[in-house]
Each structure stands twice: as structure tokens, then as C-alpha cells.
Computed example of a mutant assay.
Amino acid sequence: MTDMTISFLLIVMILLAFFATQLSSQDTVPRDQFNVILNNLREARADIRRLEAERDTAITERDAAREARDAAISERDAAIQERDRLRTENEDLLTKIRQLEALVDRLQRDLDAVTAERDDLLERLSRLQQINPLEAYLAQAIEQRREILIELRERLLEQFPELASIISIQQDTLRFQGEGLFATGSSQPDTARKRAIVEAMGLVLDEILACYSLSETQEDTSSCGNNSVLVEAVQIEGHTDSVGTDGTNFPLSAARAITTLQTMVRVAPSLSTRLNWSRQPVMSIAGYGPMRPIDTNETVAGRSANRRIDLRIIMYAPSNVEEVEEIRRRLDALRAAGGSE
């Protein structure tokens, strides 16, 4: 609008100048009219300067507006980019949230399964903690048998240290391996020292069995503690290597077992009075000949290992809870009476 006004005034000035050139020197106008025209010209020039200033101001404002517009456009573009970035981040976050929710659901299912398994185990444990007397007896019997074997071996080693490489515990058996007690082909201890070993074994075993068997004789059982299990049998087992025939090996193995038992009973007579739950003698013998080797018979060392005596301890296994209670009652009665019922 300002540019149009300036252009209009320029046109007016041009027309005035044109009319002025058309006047001749002889042409005259009244002064009043001249003054009016002059004043109009001055006002037009002033208006032109004013309008030019306004135009410059408008141009400046226009340029500033354009800069502001460009800045706003840049800010808008930056805002759009930021919006797009935030939208992308938001989508990524939503994806991660969904993944985490799925993970939480899976972990919750796992936790529920573990909790259920824990509850089941706790229930089982609770049932197990309700000890079955029969199961408790059998577990105690196994533990007591091992303690008997350990005590027997340790007390023998105290008197006869040389037996360290000869006697060993094998599950329910105390094993005398090789020619520790008998020479090849013999059923008798060939030295006084070996005979002393058998005698010491009889004395120690008799003392131990006082706590794990019934007896018709009165004796001090105060050292037995609260033991409430019984030995069914102590079996002395004789073994040979494969050299020779069955006709010689079986009698030889049985003879070794018999000699061992007789030697033990000679120094500890009460061994023969130790009774099991069925009122049968606890002590027994067996001869296996070469039937149960523990090593090869193809070497000297193997055959030596197979010629042995095993002292096997068999614990009594009750058939019901009532029998367990009766065993405990009888053993308590024996201790209370000093060994006799």
C-alpha cells in the first residue's frame, strides 16, 4: 500500500513538472495560486519522505517478519523432528514395555510353578518329619552296624598296628585279607601273634555285642546308652583262592571260620550266649571256598587277597512298628535289670 501511494505521488510530481515546462516566461499565475501549488508540492515531497520512511520501516518489519517466519518454520521443523523422534522413542518404549510385560508374565508363571513345587516339597518334608518308627529303626540299624565295625577295627589296631594294611571295612563286613591270620592251606593261626589277634577280636566283639543282643546272663550294660537296635547275626566267613579242588577248598574255608569262632569263644565264653530276636545264637559260620573272590586268581597277589576271613554283621529288621516297640522294651528291661530279663 505504501509503495502504491509513493508511486501515485511521483506521478503527481511528474505531472506538475510537465505542466511547469509548458508554461512560458510570459505565462503568469496569481501568487496565491502559485503559493498553493508550491505548498502542495512541499507537502507532496514531505509525504513522499514520510512514506519512504514508512516504506523502509515496513520493509524492515517485513524482513524481520520473514526472519521470524523462517525462524518459526525452523522451530516448527525442529519440533516436527523432535516429535518424530519422541514418537519413535515412544514406540520403542511401548515395544520394550510389552516385552517386559511378557517377561513379567513368564516370570510370574515360573514363580507360581516354583511356589507350587516349594509347597509340595514342604508338604513332603512335613510328612517326612513325621518319623515312621520302623524306618527310623532301620536307619539307626545301618548306622549302628557301621559304628560297630569302626569300633572293632580301631580297637584291634590299637593292639596290633600291623593290621592296618590287612583289615578293612567293606559295607557290612570287617575283612581280614591275605595271610593275615592263616598260612596257605592251613586252618590254624600259624603264630602266637595271629592267635592273639583272634582272641582280642573275640573279647572286643563280645563287649560290643552286649549292647546289641539279648542275653540270659546278668551283666553291666550301663555303657550302651540309648541303643535300641539288635544284631541278627555275626557271621564268620571263610574264603580260599581257586588253587586246589572244591573238595579241599570248601572244608578249608569252613575250618578257618570254625577255628576263628572257637578261638574267640574260648577267651570270651559269653559270645555263645548272645541271642538275636528269635532267641537264636548271634554267632554263626560259613565257608564259601573259592566262590566269592574279591580279586583275580591269576596272580599271586590276587590269590592272597582271596584267602581271607570276613566278619559280617547282619542287623535285625523288624516287620512292623509293634515289633520295634517290643525290641525297645526288651532292651530297656535288660538295662534296668543289669542284663537279665
Rank of each mutant, 00 (worst) to 15 (best):
M1A: 11
M1G: 08
D3G: 03
L9T: 08
F18S: 14
T21L: 11
Q22P: 01
Q22C: 05
L23K: 09
S25A: 10
V29L: 12
V29T: 09
P30F: 10
P30V: 05
D32T: 12
Q33N: 11
N39Y: 15
R42Y: 11
R45S: 07
I48D: 02
I48G: 02
R49G: 08
L51F: 09
E54V: 04
I59R: 11
T60C: 10
T60D: 15
T60F: 10
R69T: 15
D70F: 10
A71M: 10
I73F: 04
D77A: 13
A78F: 12
I80D: 11
D84N: 11
R87V: 13
E91G: 02
D92K: 15
T95N: 14
T95S: 13
L100T: 06
L100S: 10
L103K: 09
V104I: 12
V104G: 03
L107W: 08
R109M: 09
D110E: 13
D112P: 02
R118Q: 08
D119Y: 04
L121I: 10
S126T: 14
P133I: 12
P133R: 09
Y137W: 06
Y137F: 11
L138H: 05
A139K: 07
A141T: 01
Q144R: 15
E147P: 02
E151R: 14
E151S: 13
L152I: 05
E154T: 08
Q159S: 15
Q159Y: 05
P161Q: 09
P161D: 06
E162V: 08
I166Y: 06
S168T: 12
Q171F: 05
T173P: 02
R175W: 03
R175V: 09
Q177M: 10
Q177D: 06
E179P: 02
E179G: 04
F182L: 06
Q188H: 12
P189R: 01
T191E: 05
A200G: 03
G202W: 00
V204A: 02
E207K: 14
Y212F: 13
L214I: 12
T217L: 14
Q218Y: 09
Q218A: 15
D220K: 07
S222L: 08
S222T: 11
S222F: 05
G225Y: 11
N226Y: 14
Q235G: 01
V243H: 04
G244F: 05
D246Y: 04
N249T: 05
A254D: 01
A254W: 01
A254Q: 01
A255P: 00
A257C: 05
I258N: 00
T260M: 01
T260F: 00
Q262C: 00
M264W: 00
S272V: 04
T273G: 13
Q280D: 14
Q280P: 05
M283Y: 01
S284V: 08
S284K: 14
Y288D: 03
I294D: 06
D295F: 02
D295W: 02
N297Y: 04
E298C: 07
E298K: 11
T299D: 08
V300Q: 14
V300K: 10
A301E: 15
A305S: 15
N306P: 04
R307N: 09
R308K: 13
I309T: 00
L311V: 15
I313Y: 00
I314F: 03
P318E: 12
P318Q: 11
P318L: 13
N320D: 15
E323L: 05
V324T: 02
E326Q: 15
I327S: 03
G339Y: 02
S340C: 06
